[in-house]
Amino acid sequence: MQRASVFDHLILWAGVIFLLFPVWMLFASSTHSVENIVRDGLQFLPGGNGFEAYKTALTSASGFTDTATGLRMMMNSLIMGLGFAIGKIVISMCAAYALVYFRLPFATFWFWLIFSTLLLPLEVRIVPSYEVVSQLGLLNSYTGLILPLIASATATFYFQQFYKTVPDELLEAAQLDNANAWRFFKDILVPLSRTMMAAMFIIMFVVGWNQYLWPLMMTTEESYYTIVMGIKNILSVVREGRVPQYNVAFAMVMLAMLPPVAVVVFFQRWFIQGLVESEK
């Protein structure tokens, strides 16, 4: 028993080290100067530059204008990630509520219609989506960045399955308690869905934060650039025959990792707490 648990821990530690190793290399390298990195490759041990590269990454702009600083791009990514996650959750919860609790004409048809959009990810419909957004005059705006992405069949499906497990008696008790459709949603379904919402938020925020193709298409103004685009931009000076600021790029990668990690850590605790506490 004891032996087995030591062995288990060894395996787990091996896994953790294996996964964290590249992250550590990035971090260690980001504290070296560009020359060191170019000459000696990635570094195992921290160098002498400290957090200088982080300061550069956050404050100095990499583009043609002064607007796209790391901080600004982080901000944009944050807005994008939050808008993406919250928007998806709100829309899917409402859609699922309609599908489960209201007697819609052709409900099955609507369900399959929503479900079939899974076959059309953004990459497939990117040209028409771009066309629509540009005709609406939403290029270079947060609305344009977020809105076309927030319809989500997956999340709708998850919420729908969840609502179906909520016992009918709760709805009936609420009806007798004079709760109308809106109150039932707000006072009962939403609080009961907390764990589902936390789980969805974790997933969707990370996906939204990591969006690359859509912001790349959508934004021409540097003030709307996201951090993922920023990393790419620093490295792309190779094409112009210049040596990229590897340390700054690495620092930016590290920075870009922090918010998703924070969201996971924070919401996971909430998520587990919810799992333990809630019962239907």
């Binding site: 008790a173 009806q175 009961l192 907390r194």
Partner: peptide, 20 residues
């Protein structure tokens, strides 16, 4: 009339308490 307008109260078999 809607259930809430009938001035009756119901006790369910599985209680139907709001868990949260």
């Amino acid at each position: 009339e809607a259930p809430a307008k009938r001035d009756i109260a119901m006790v369910f078999q599985n209680y139907a308490l709001y868990p949260h």
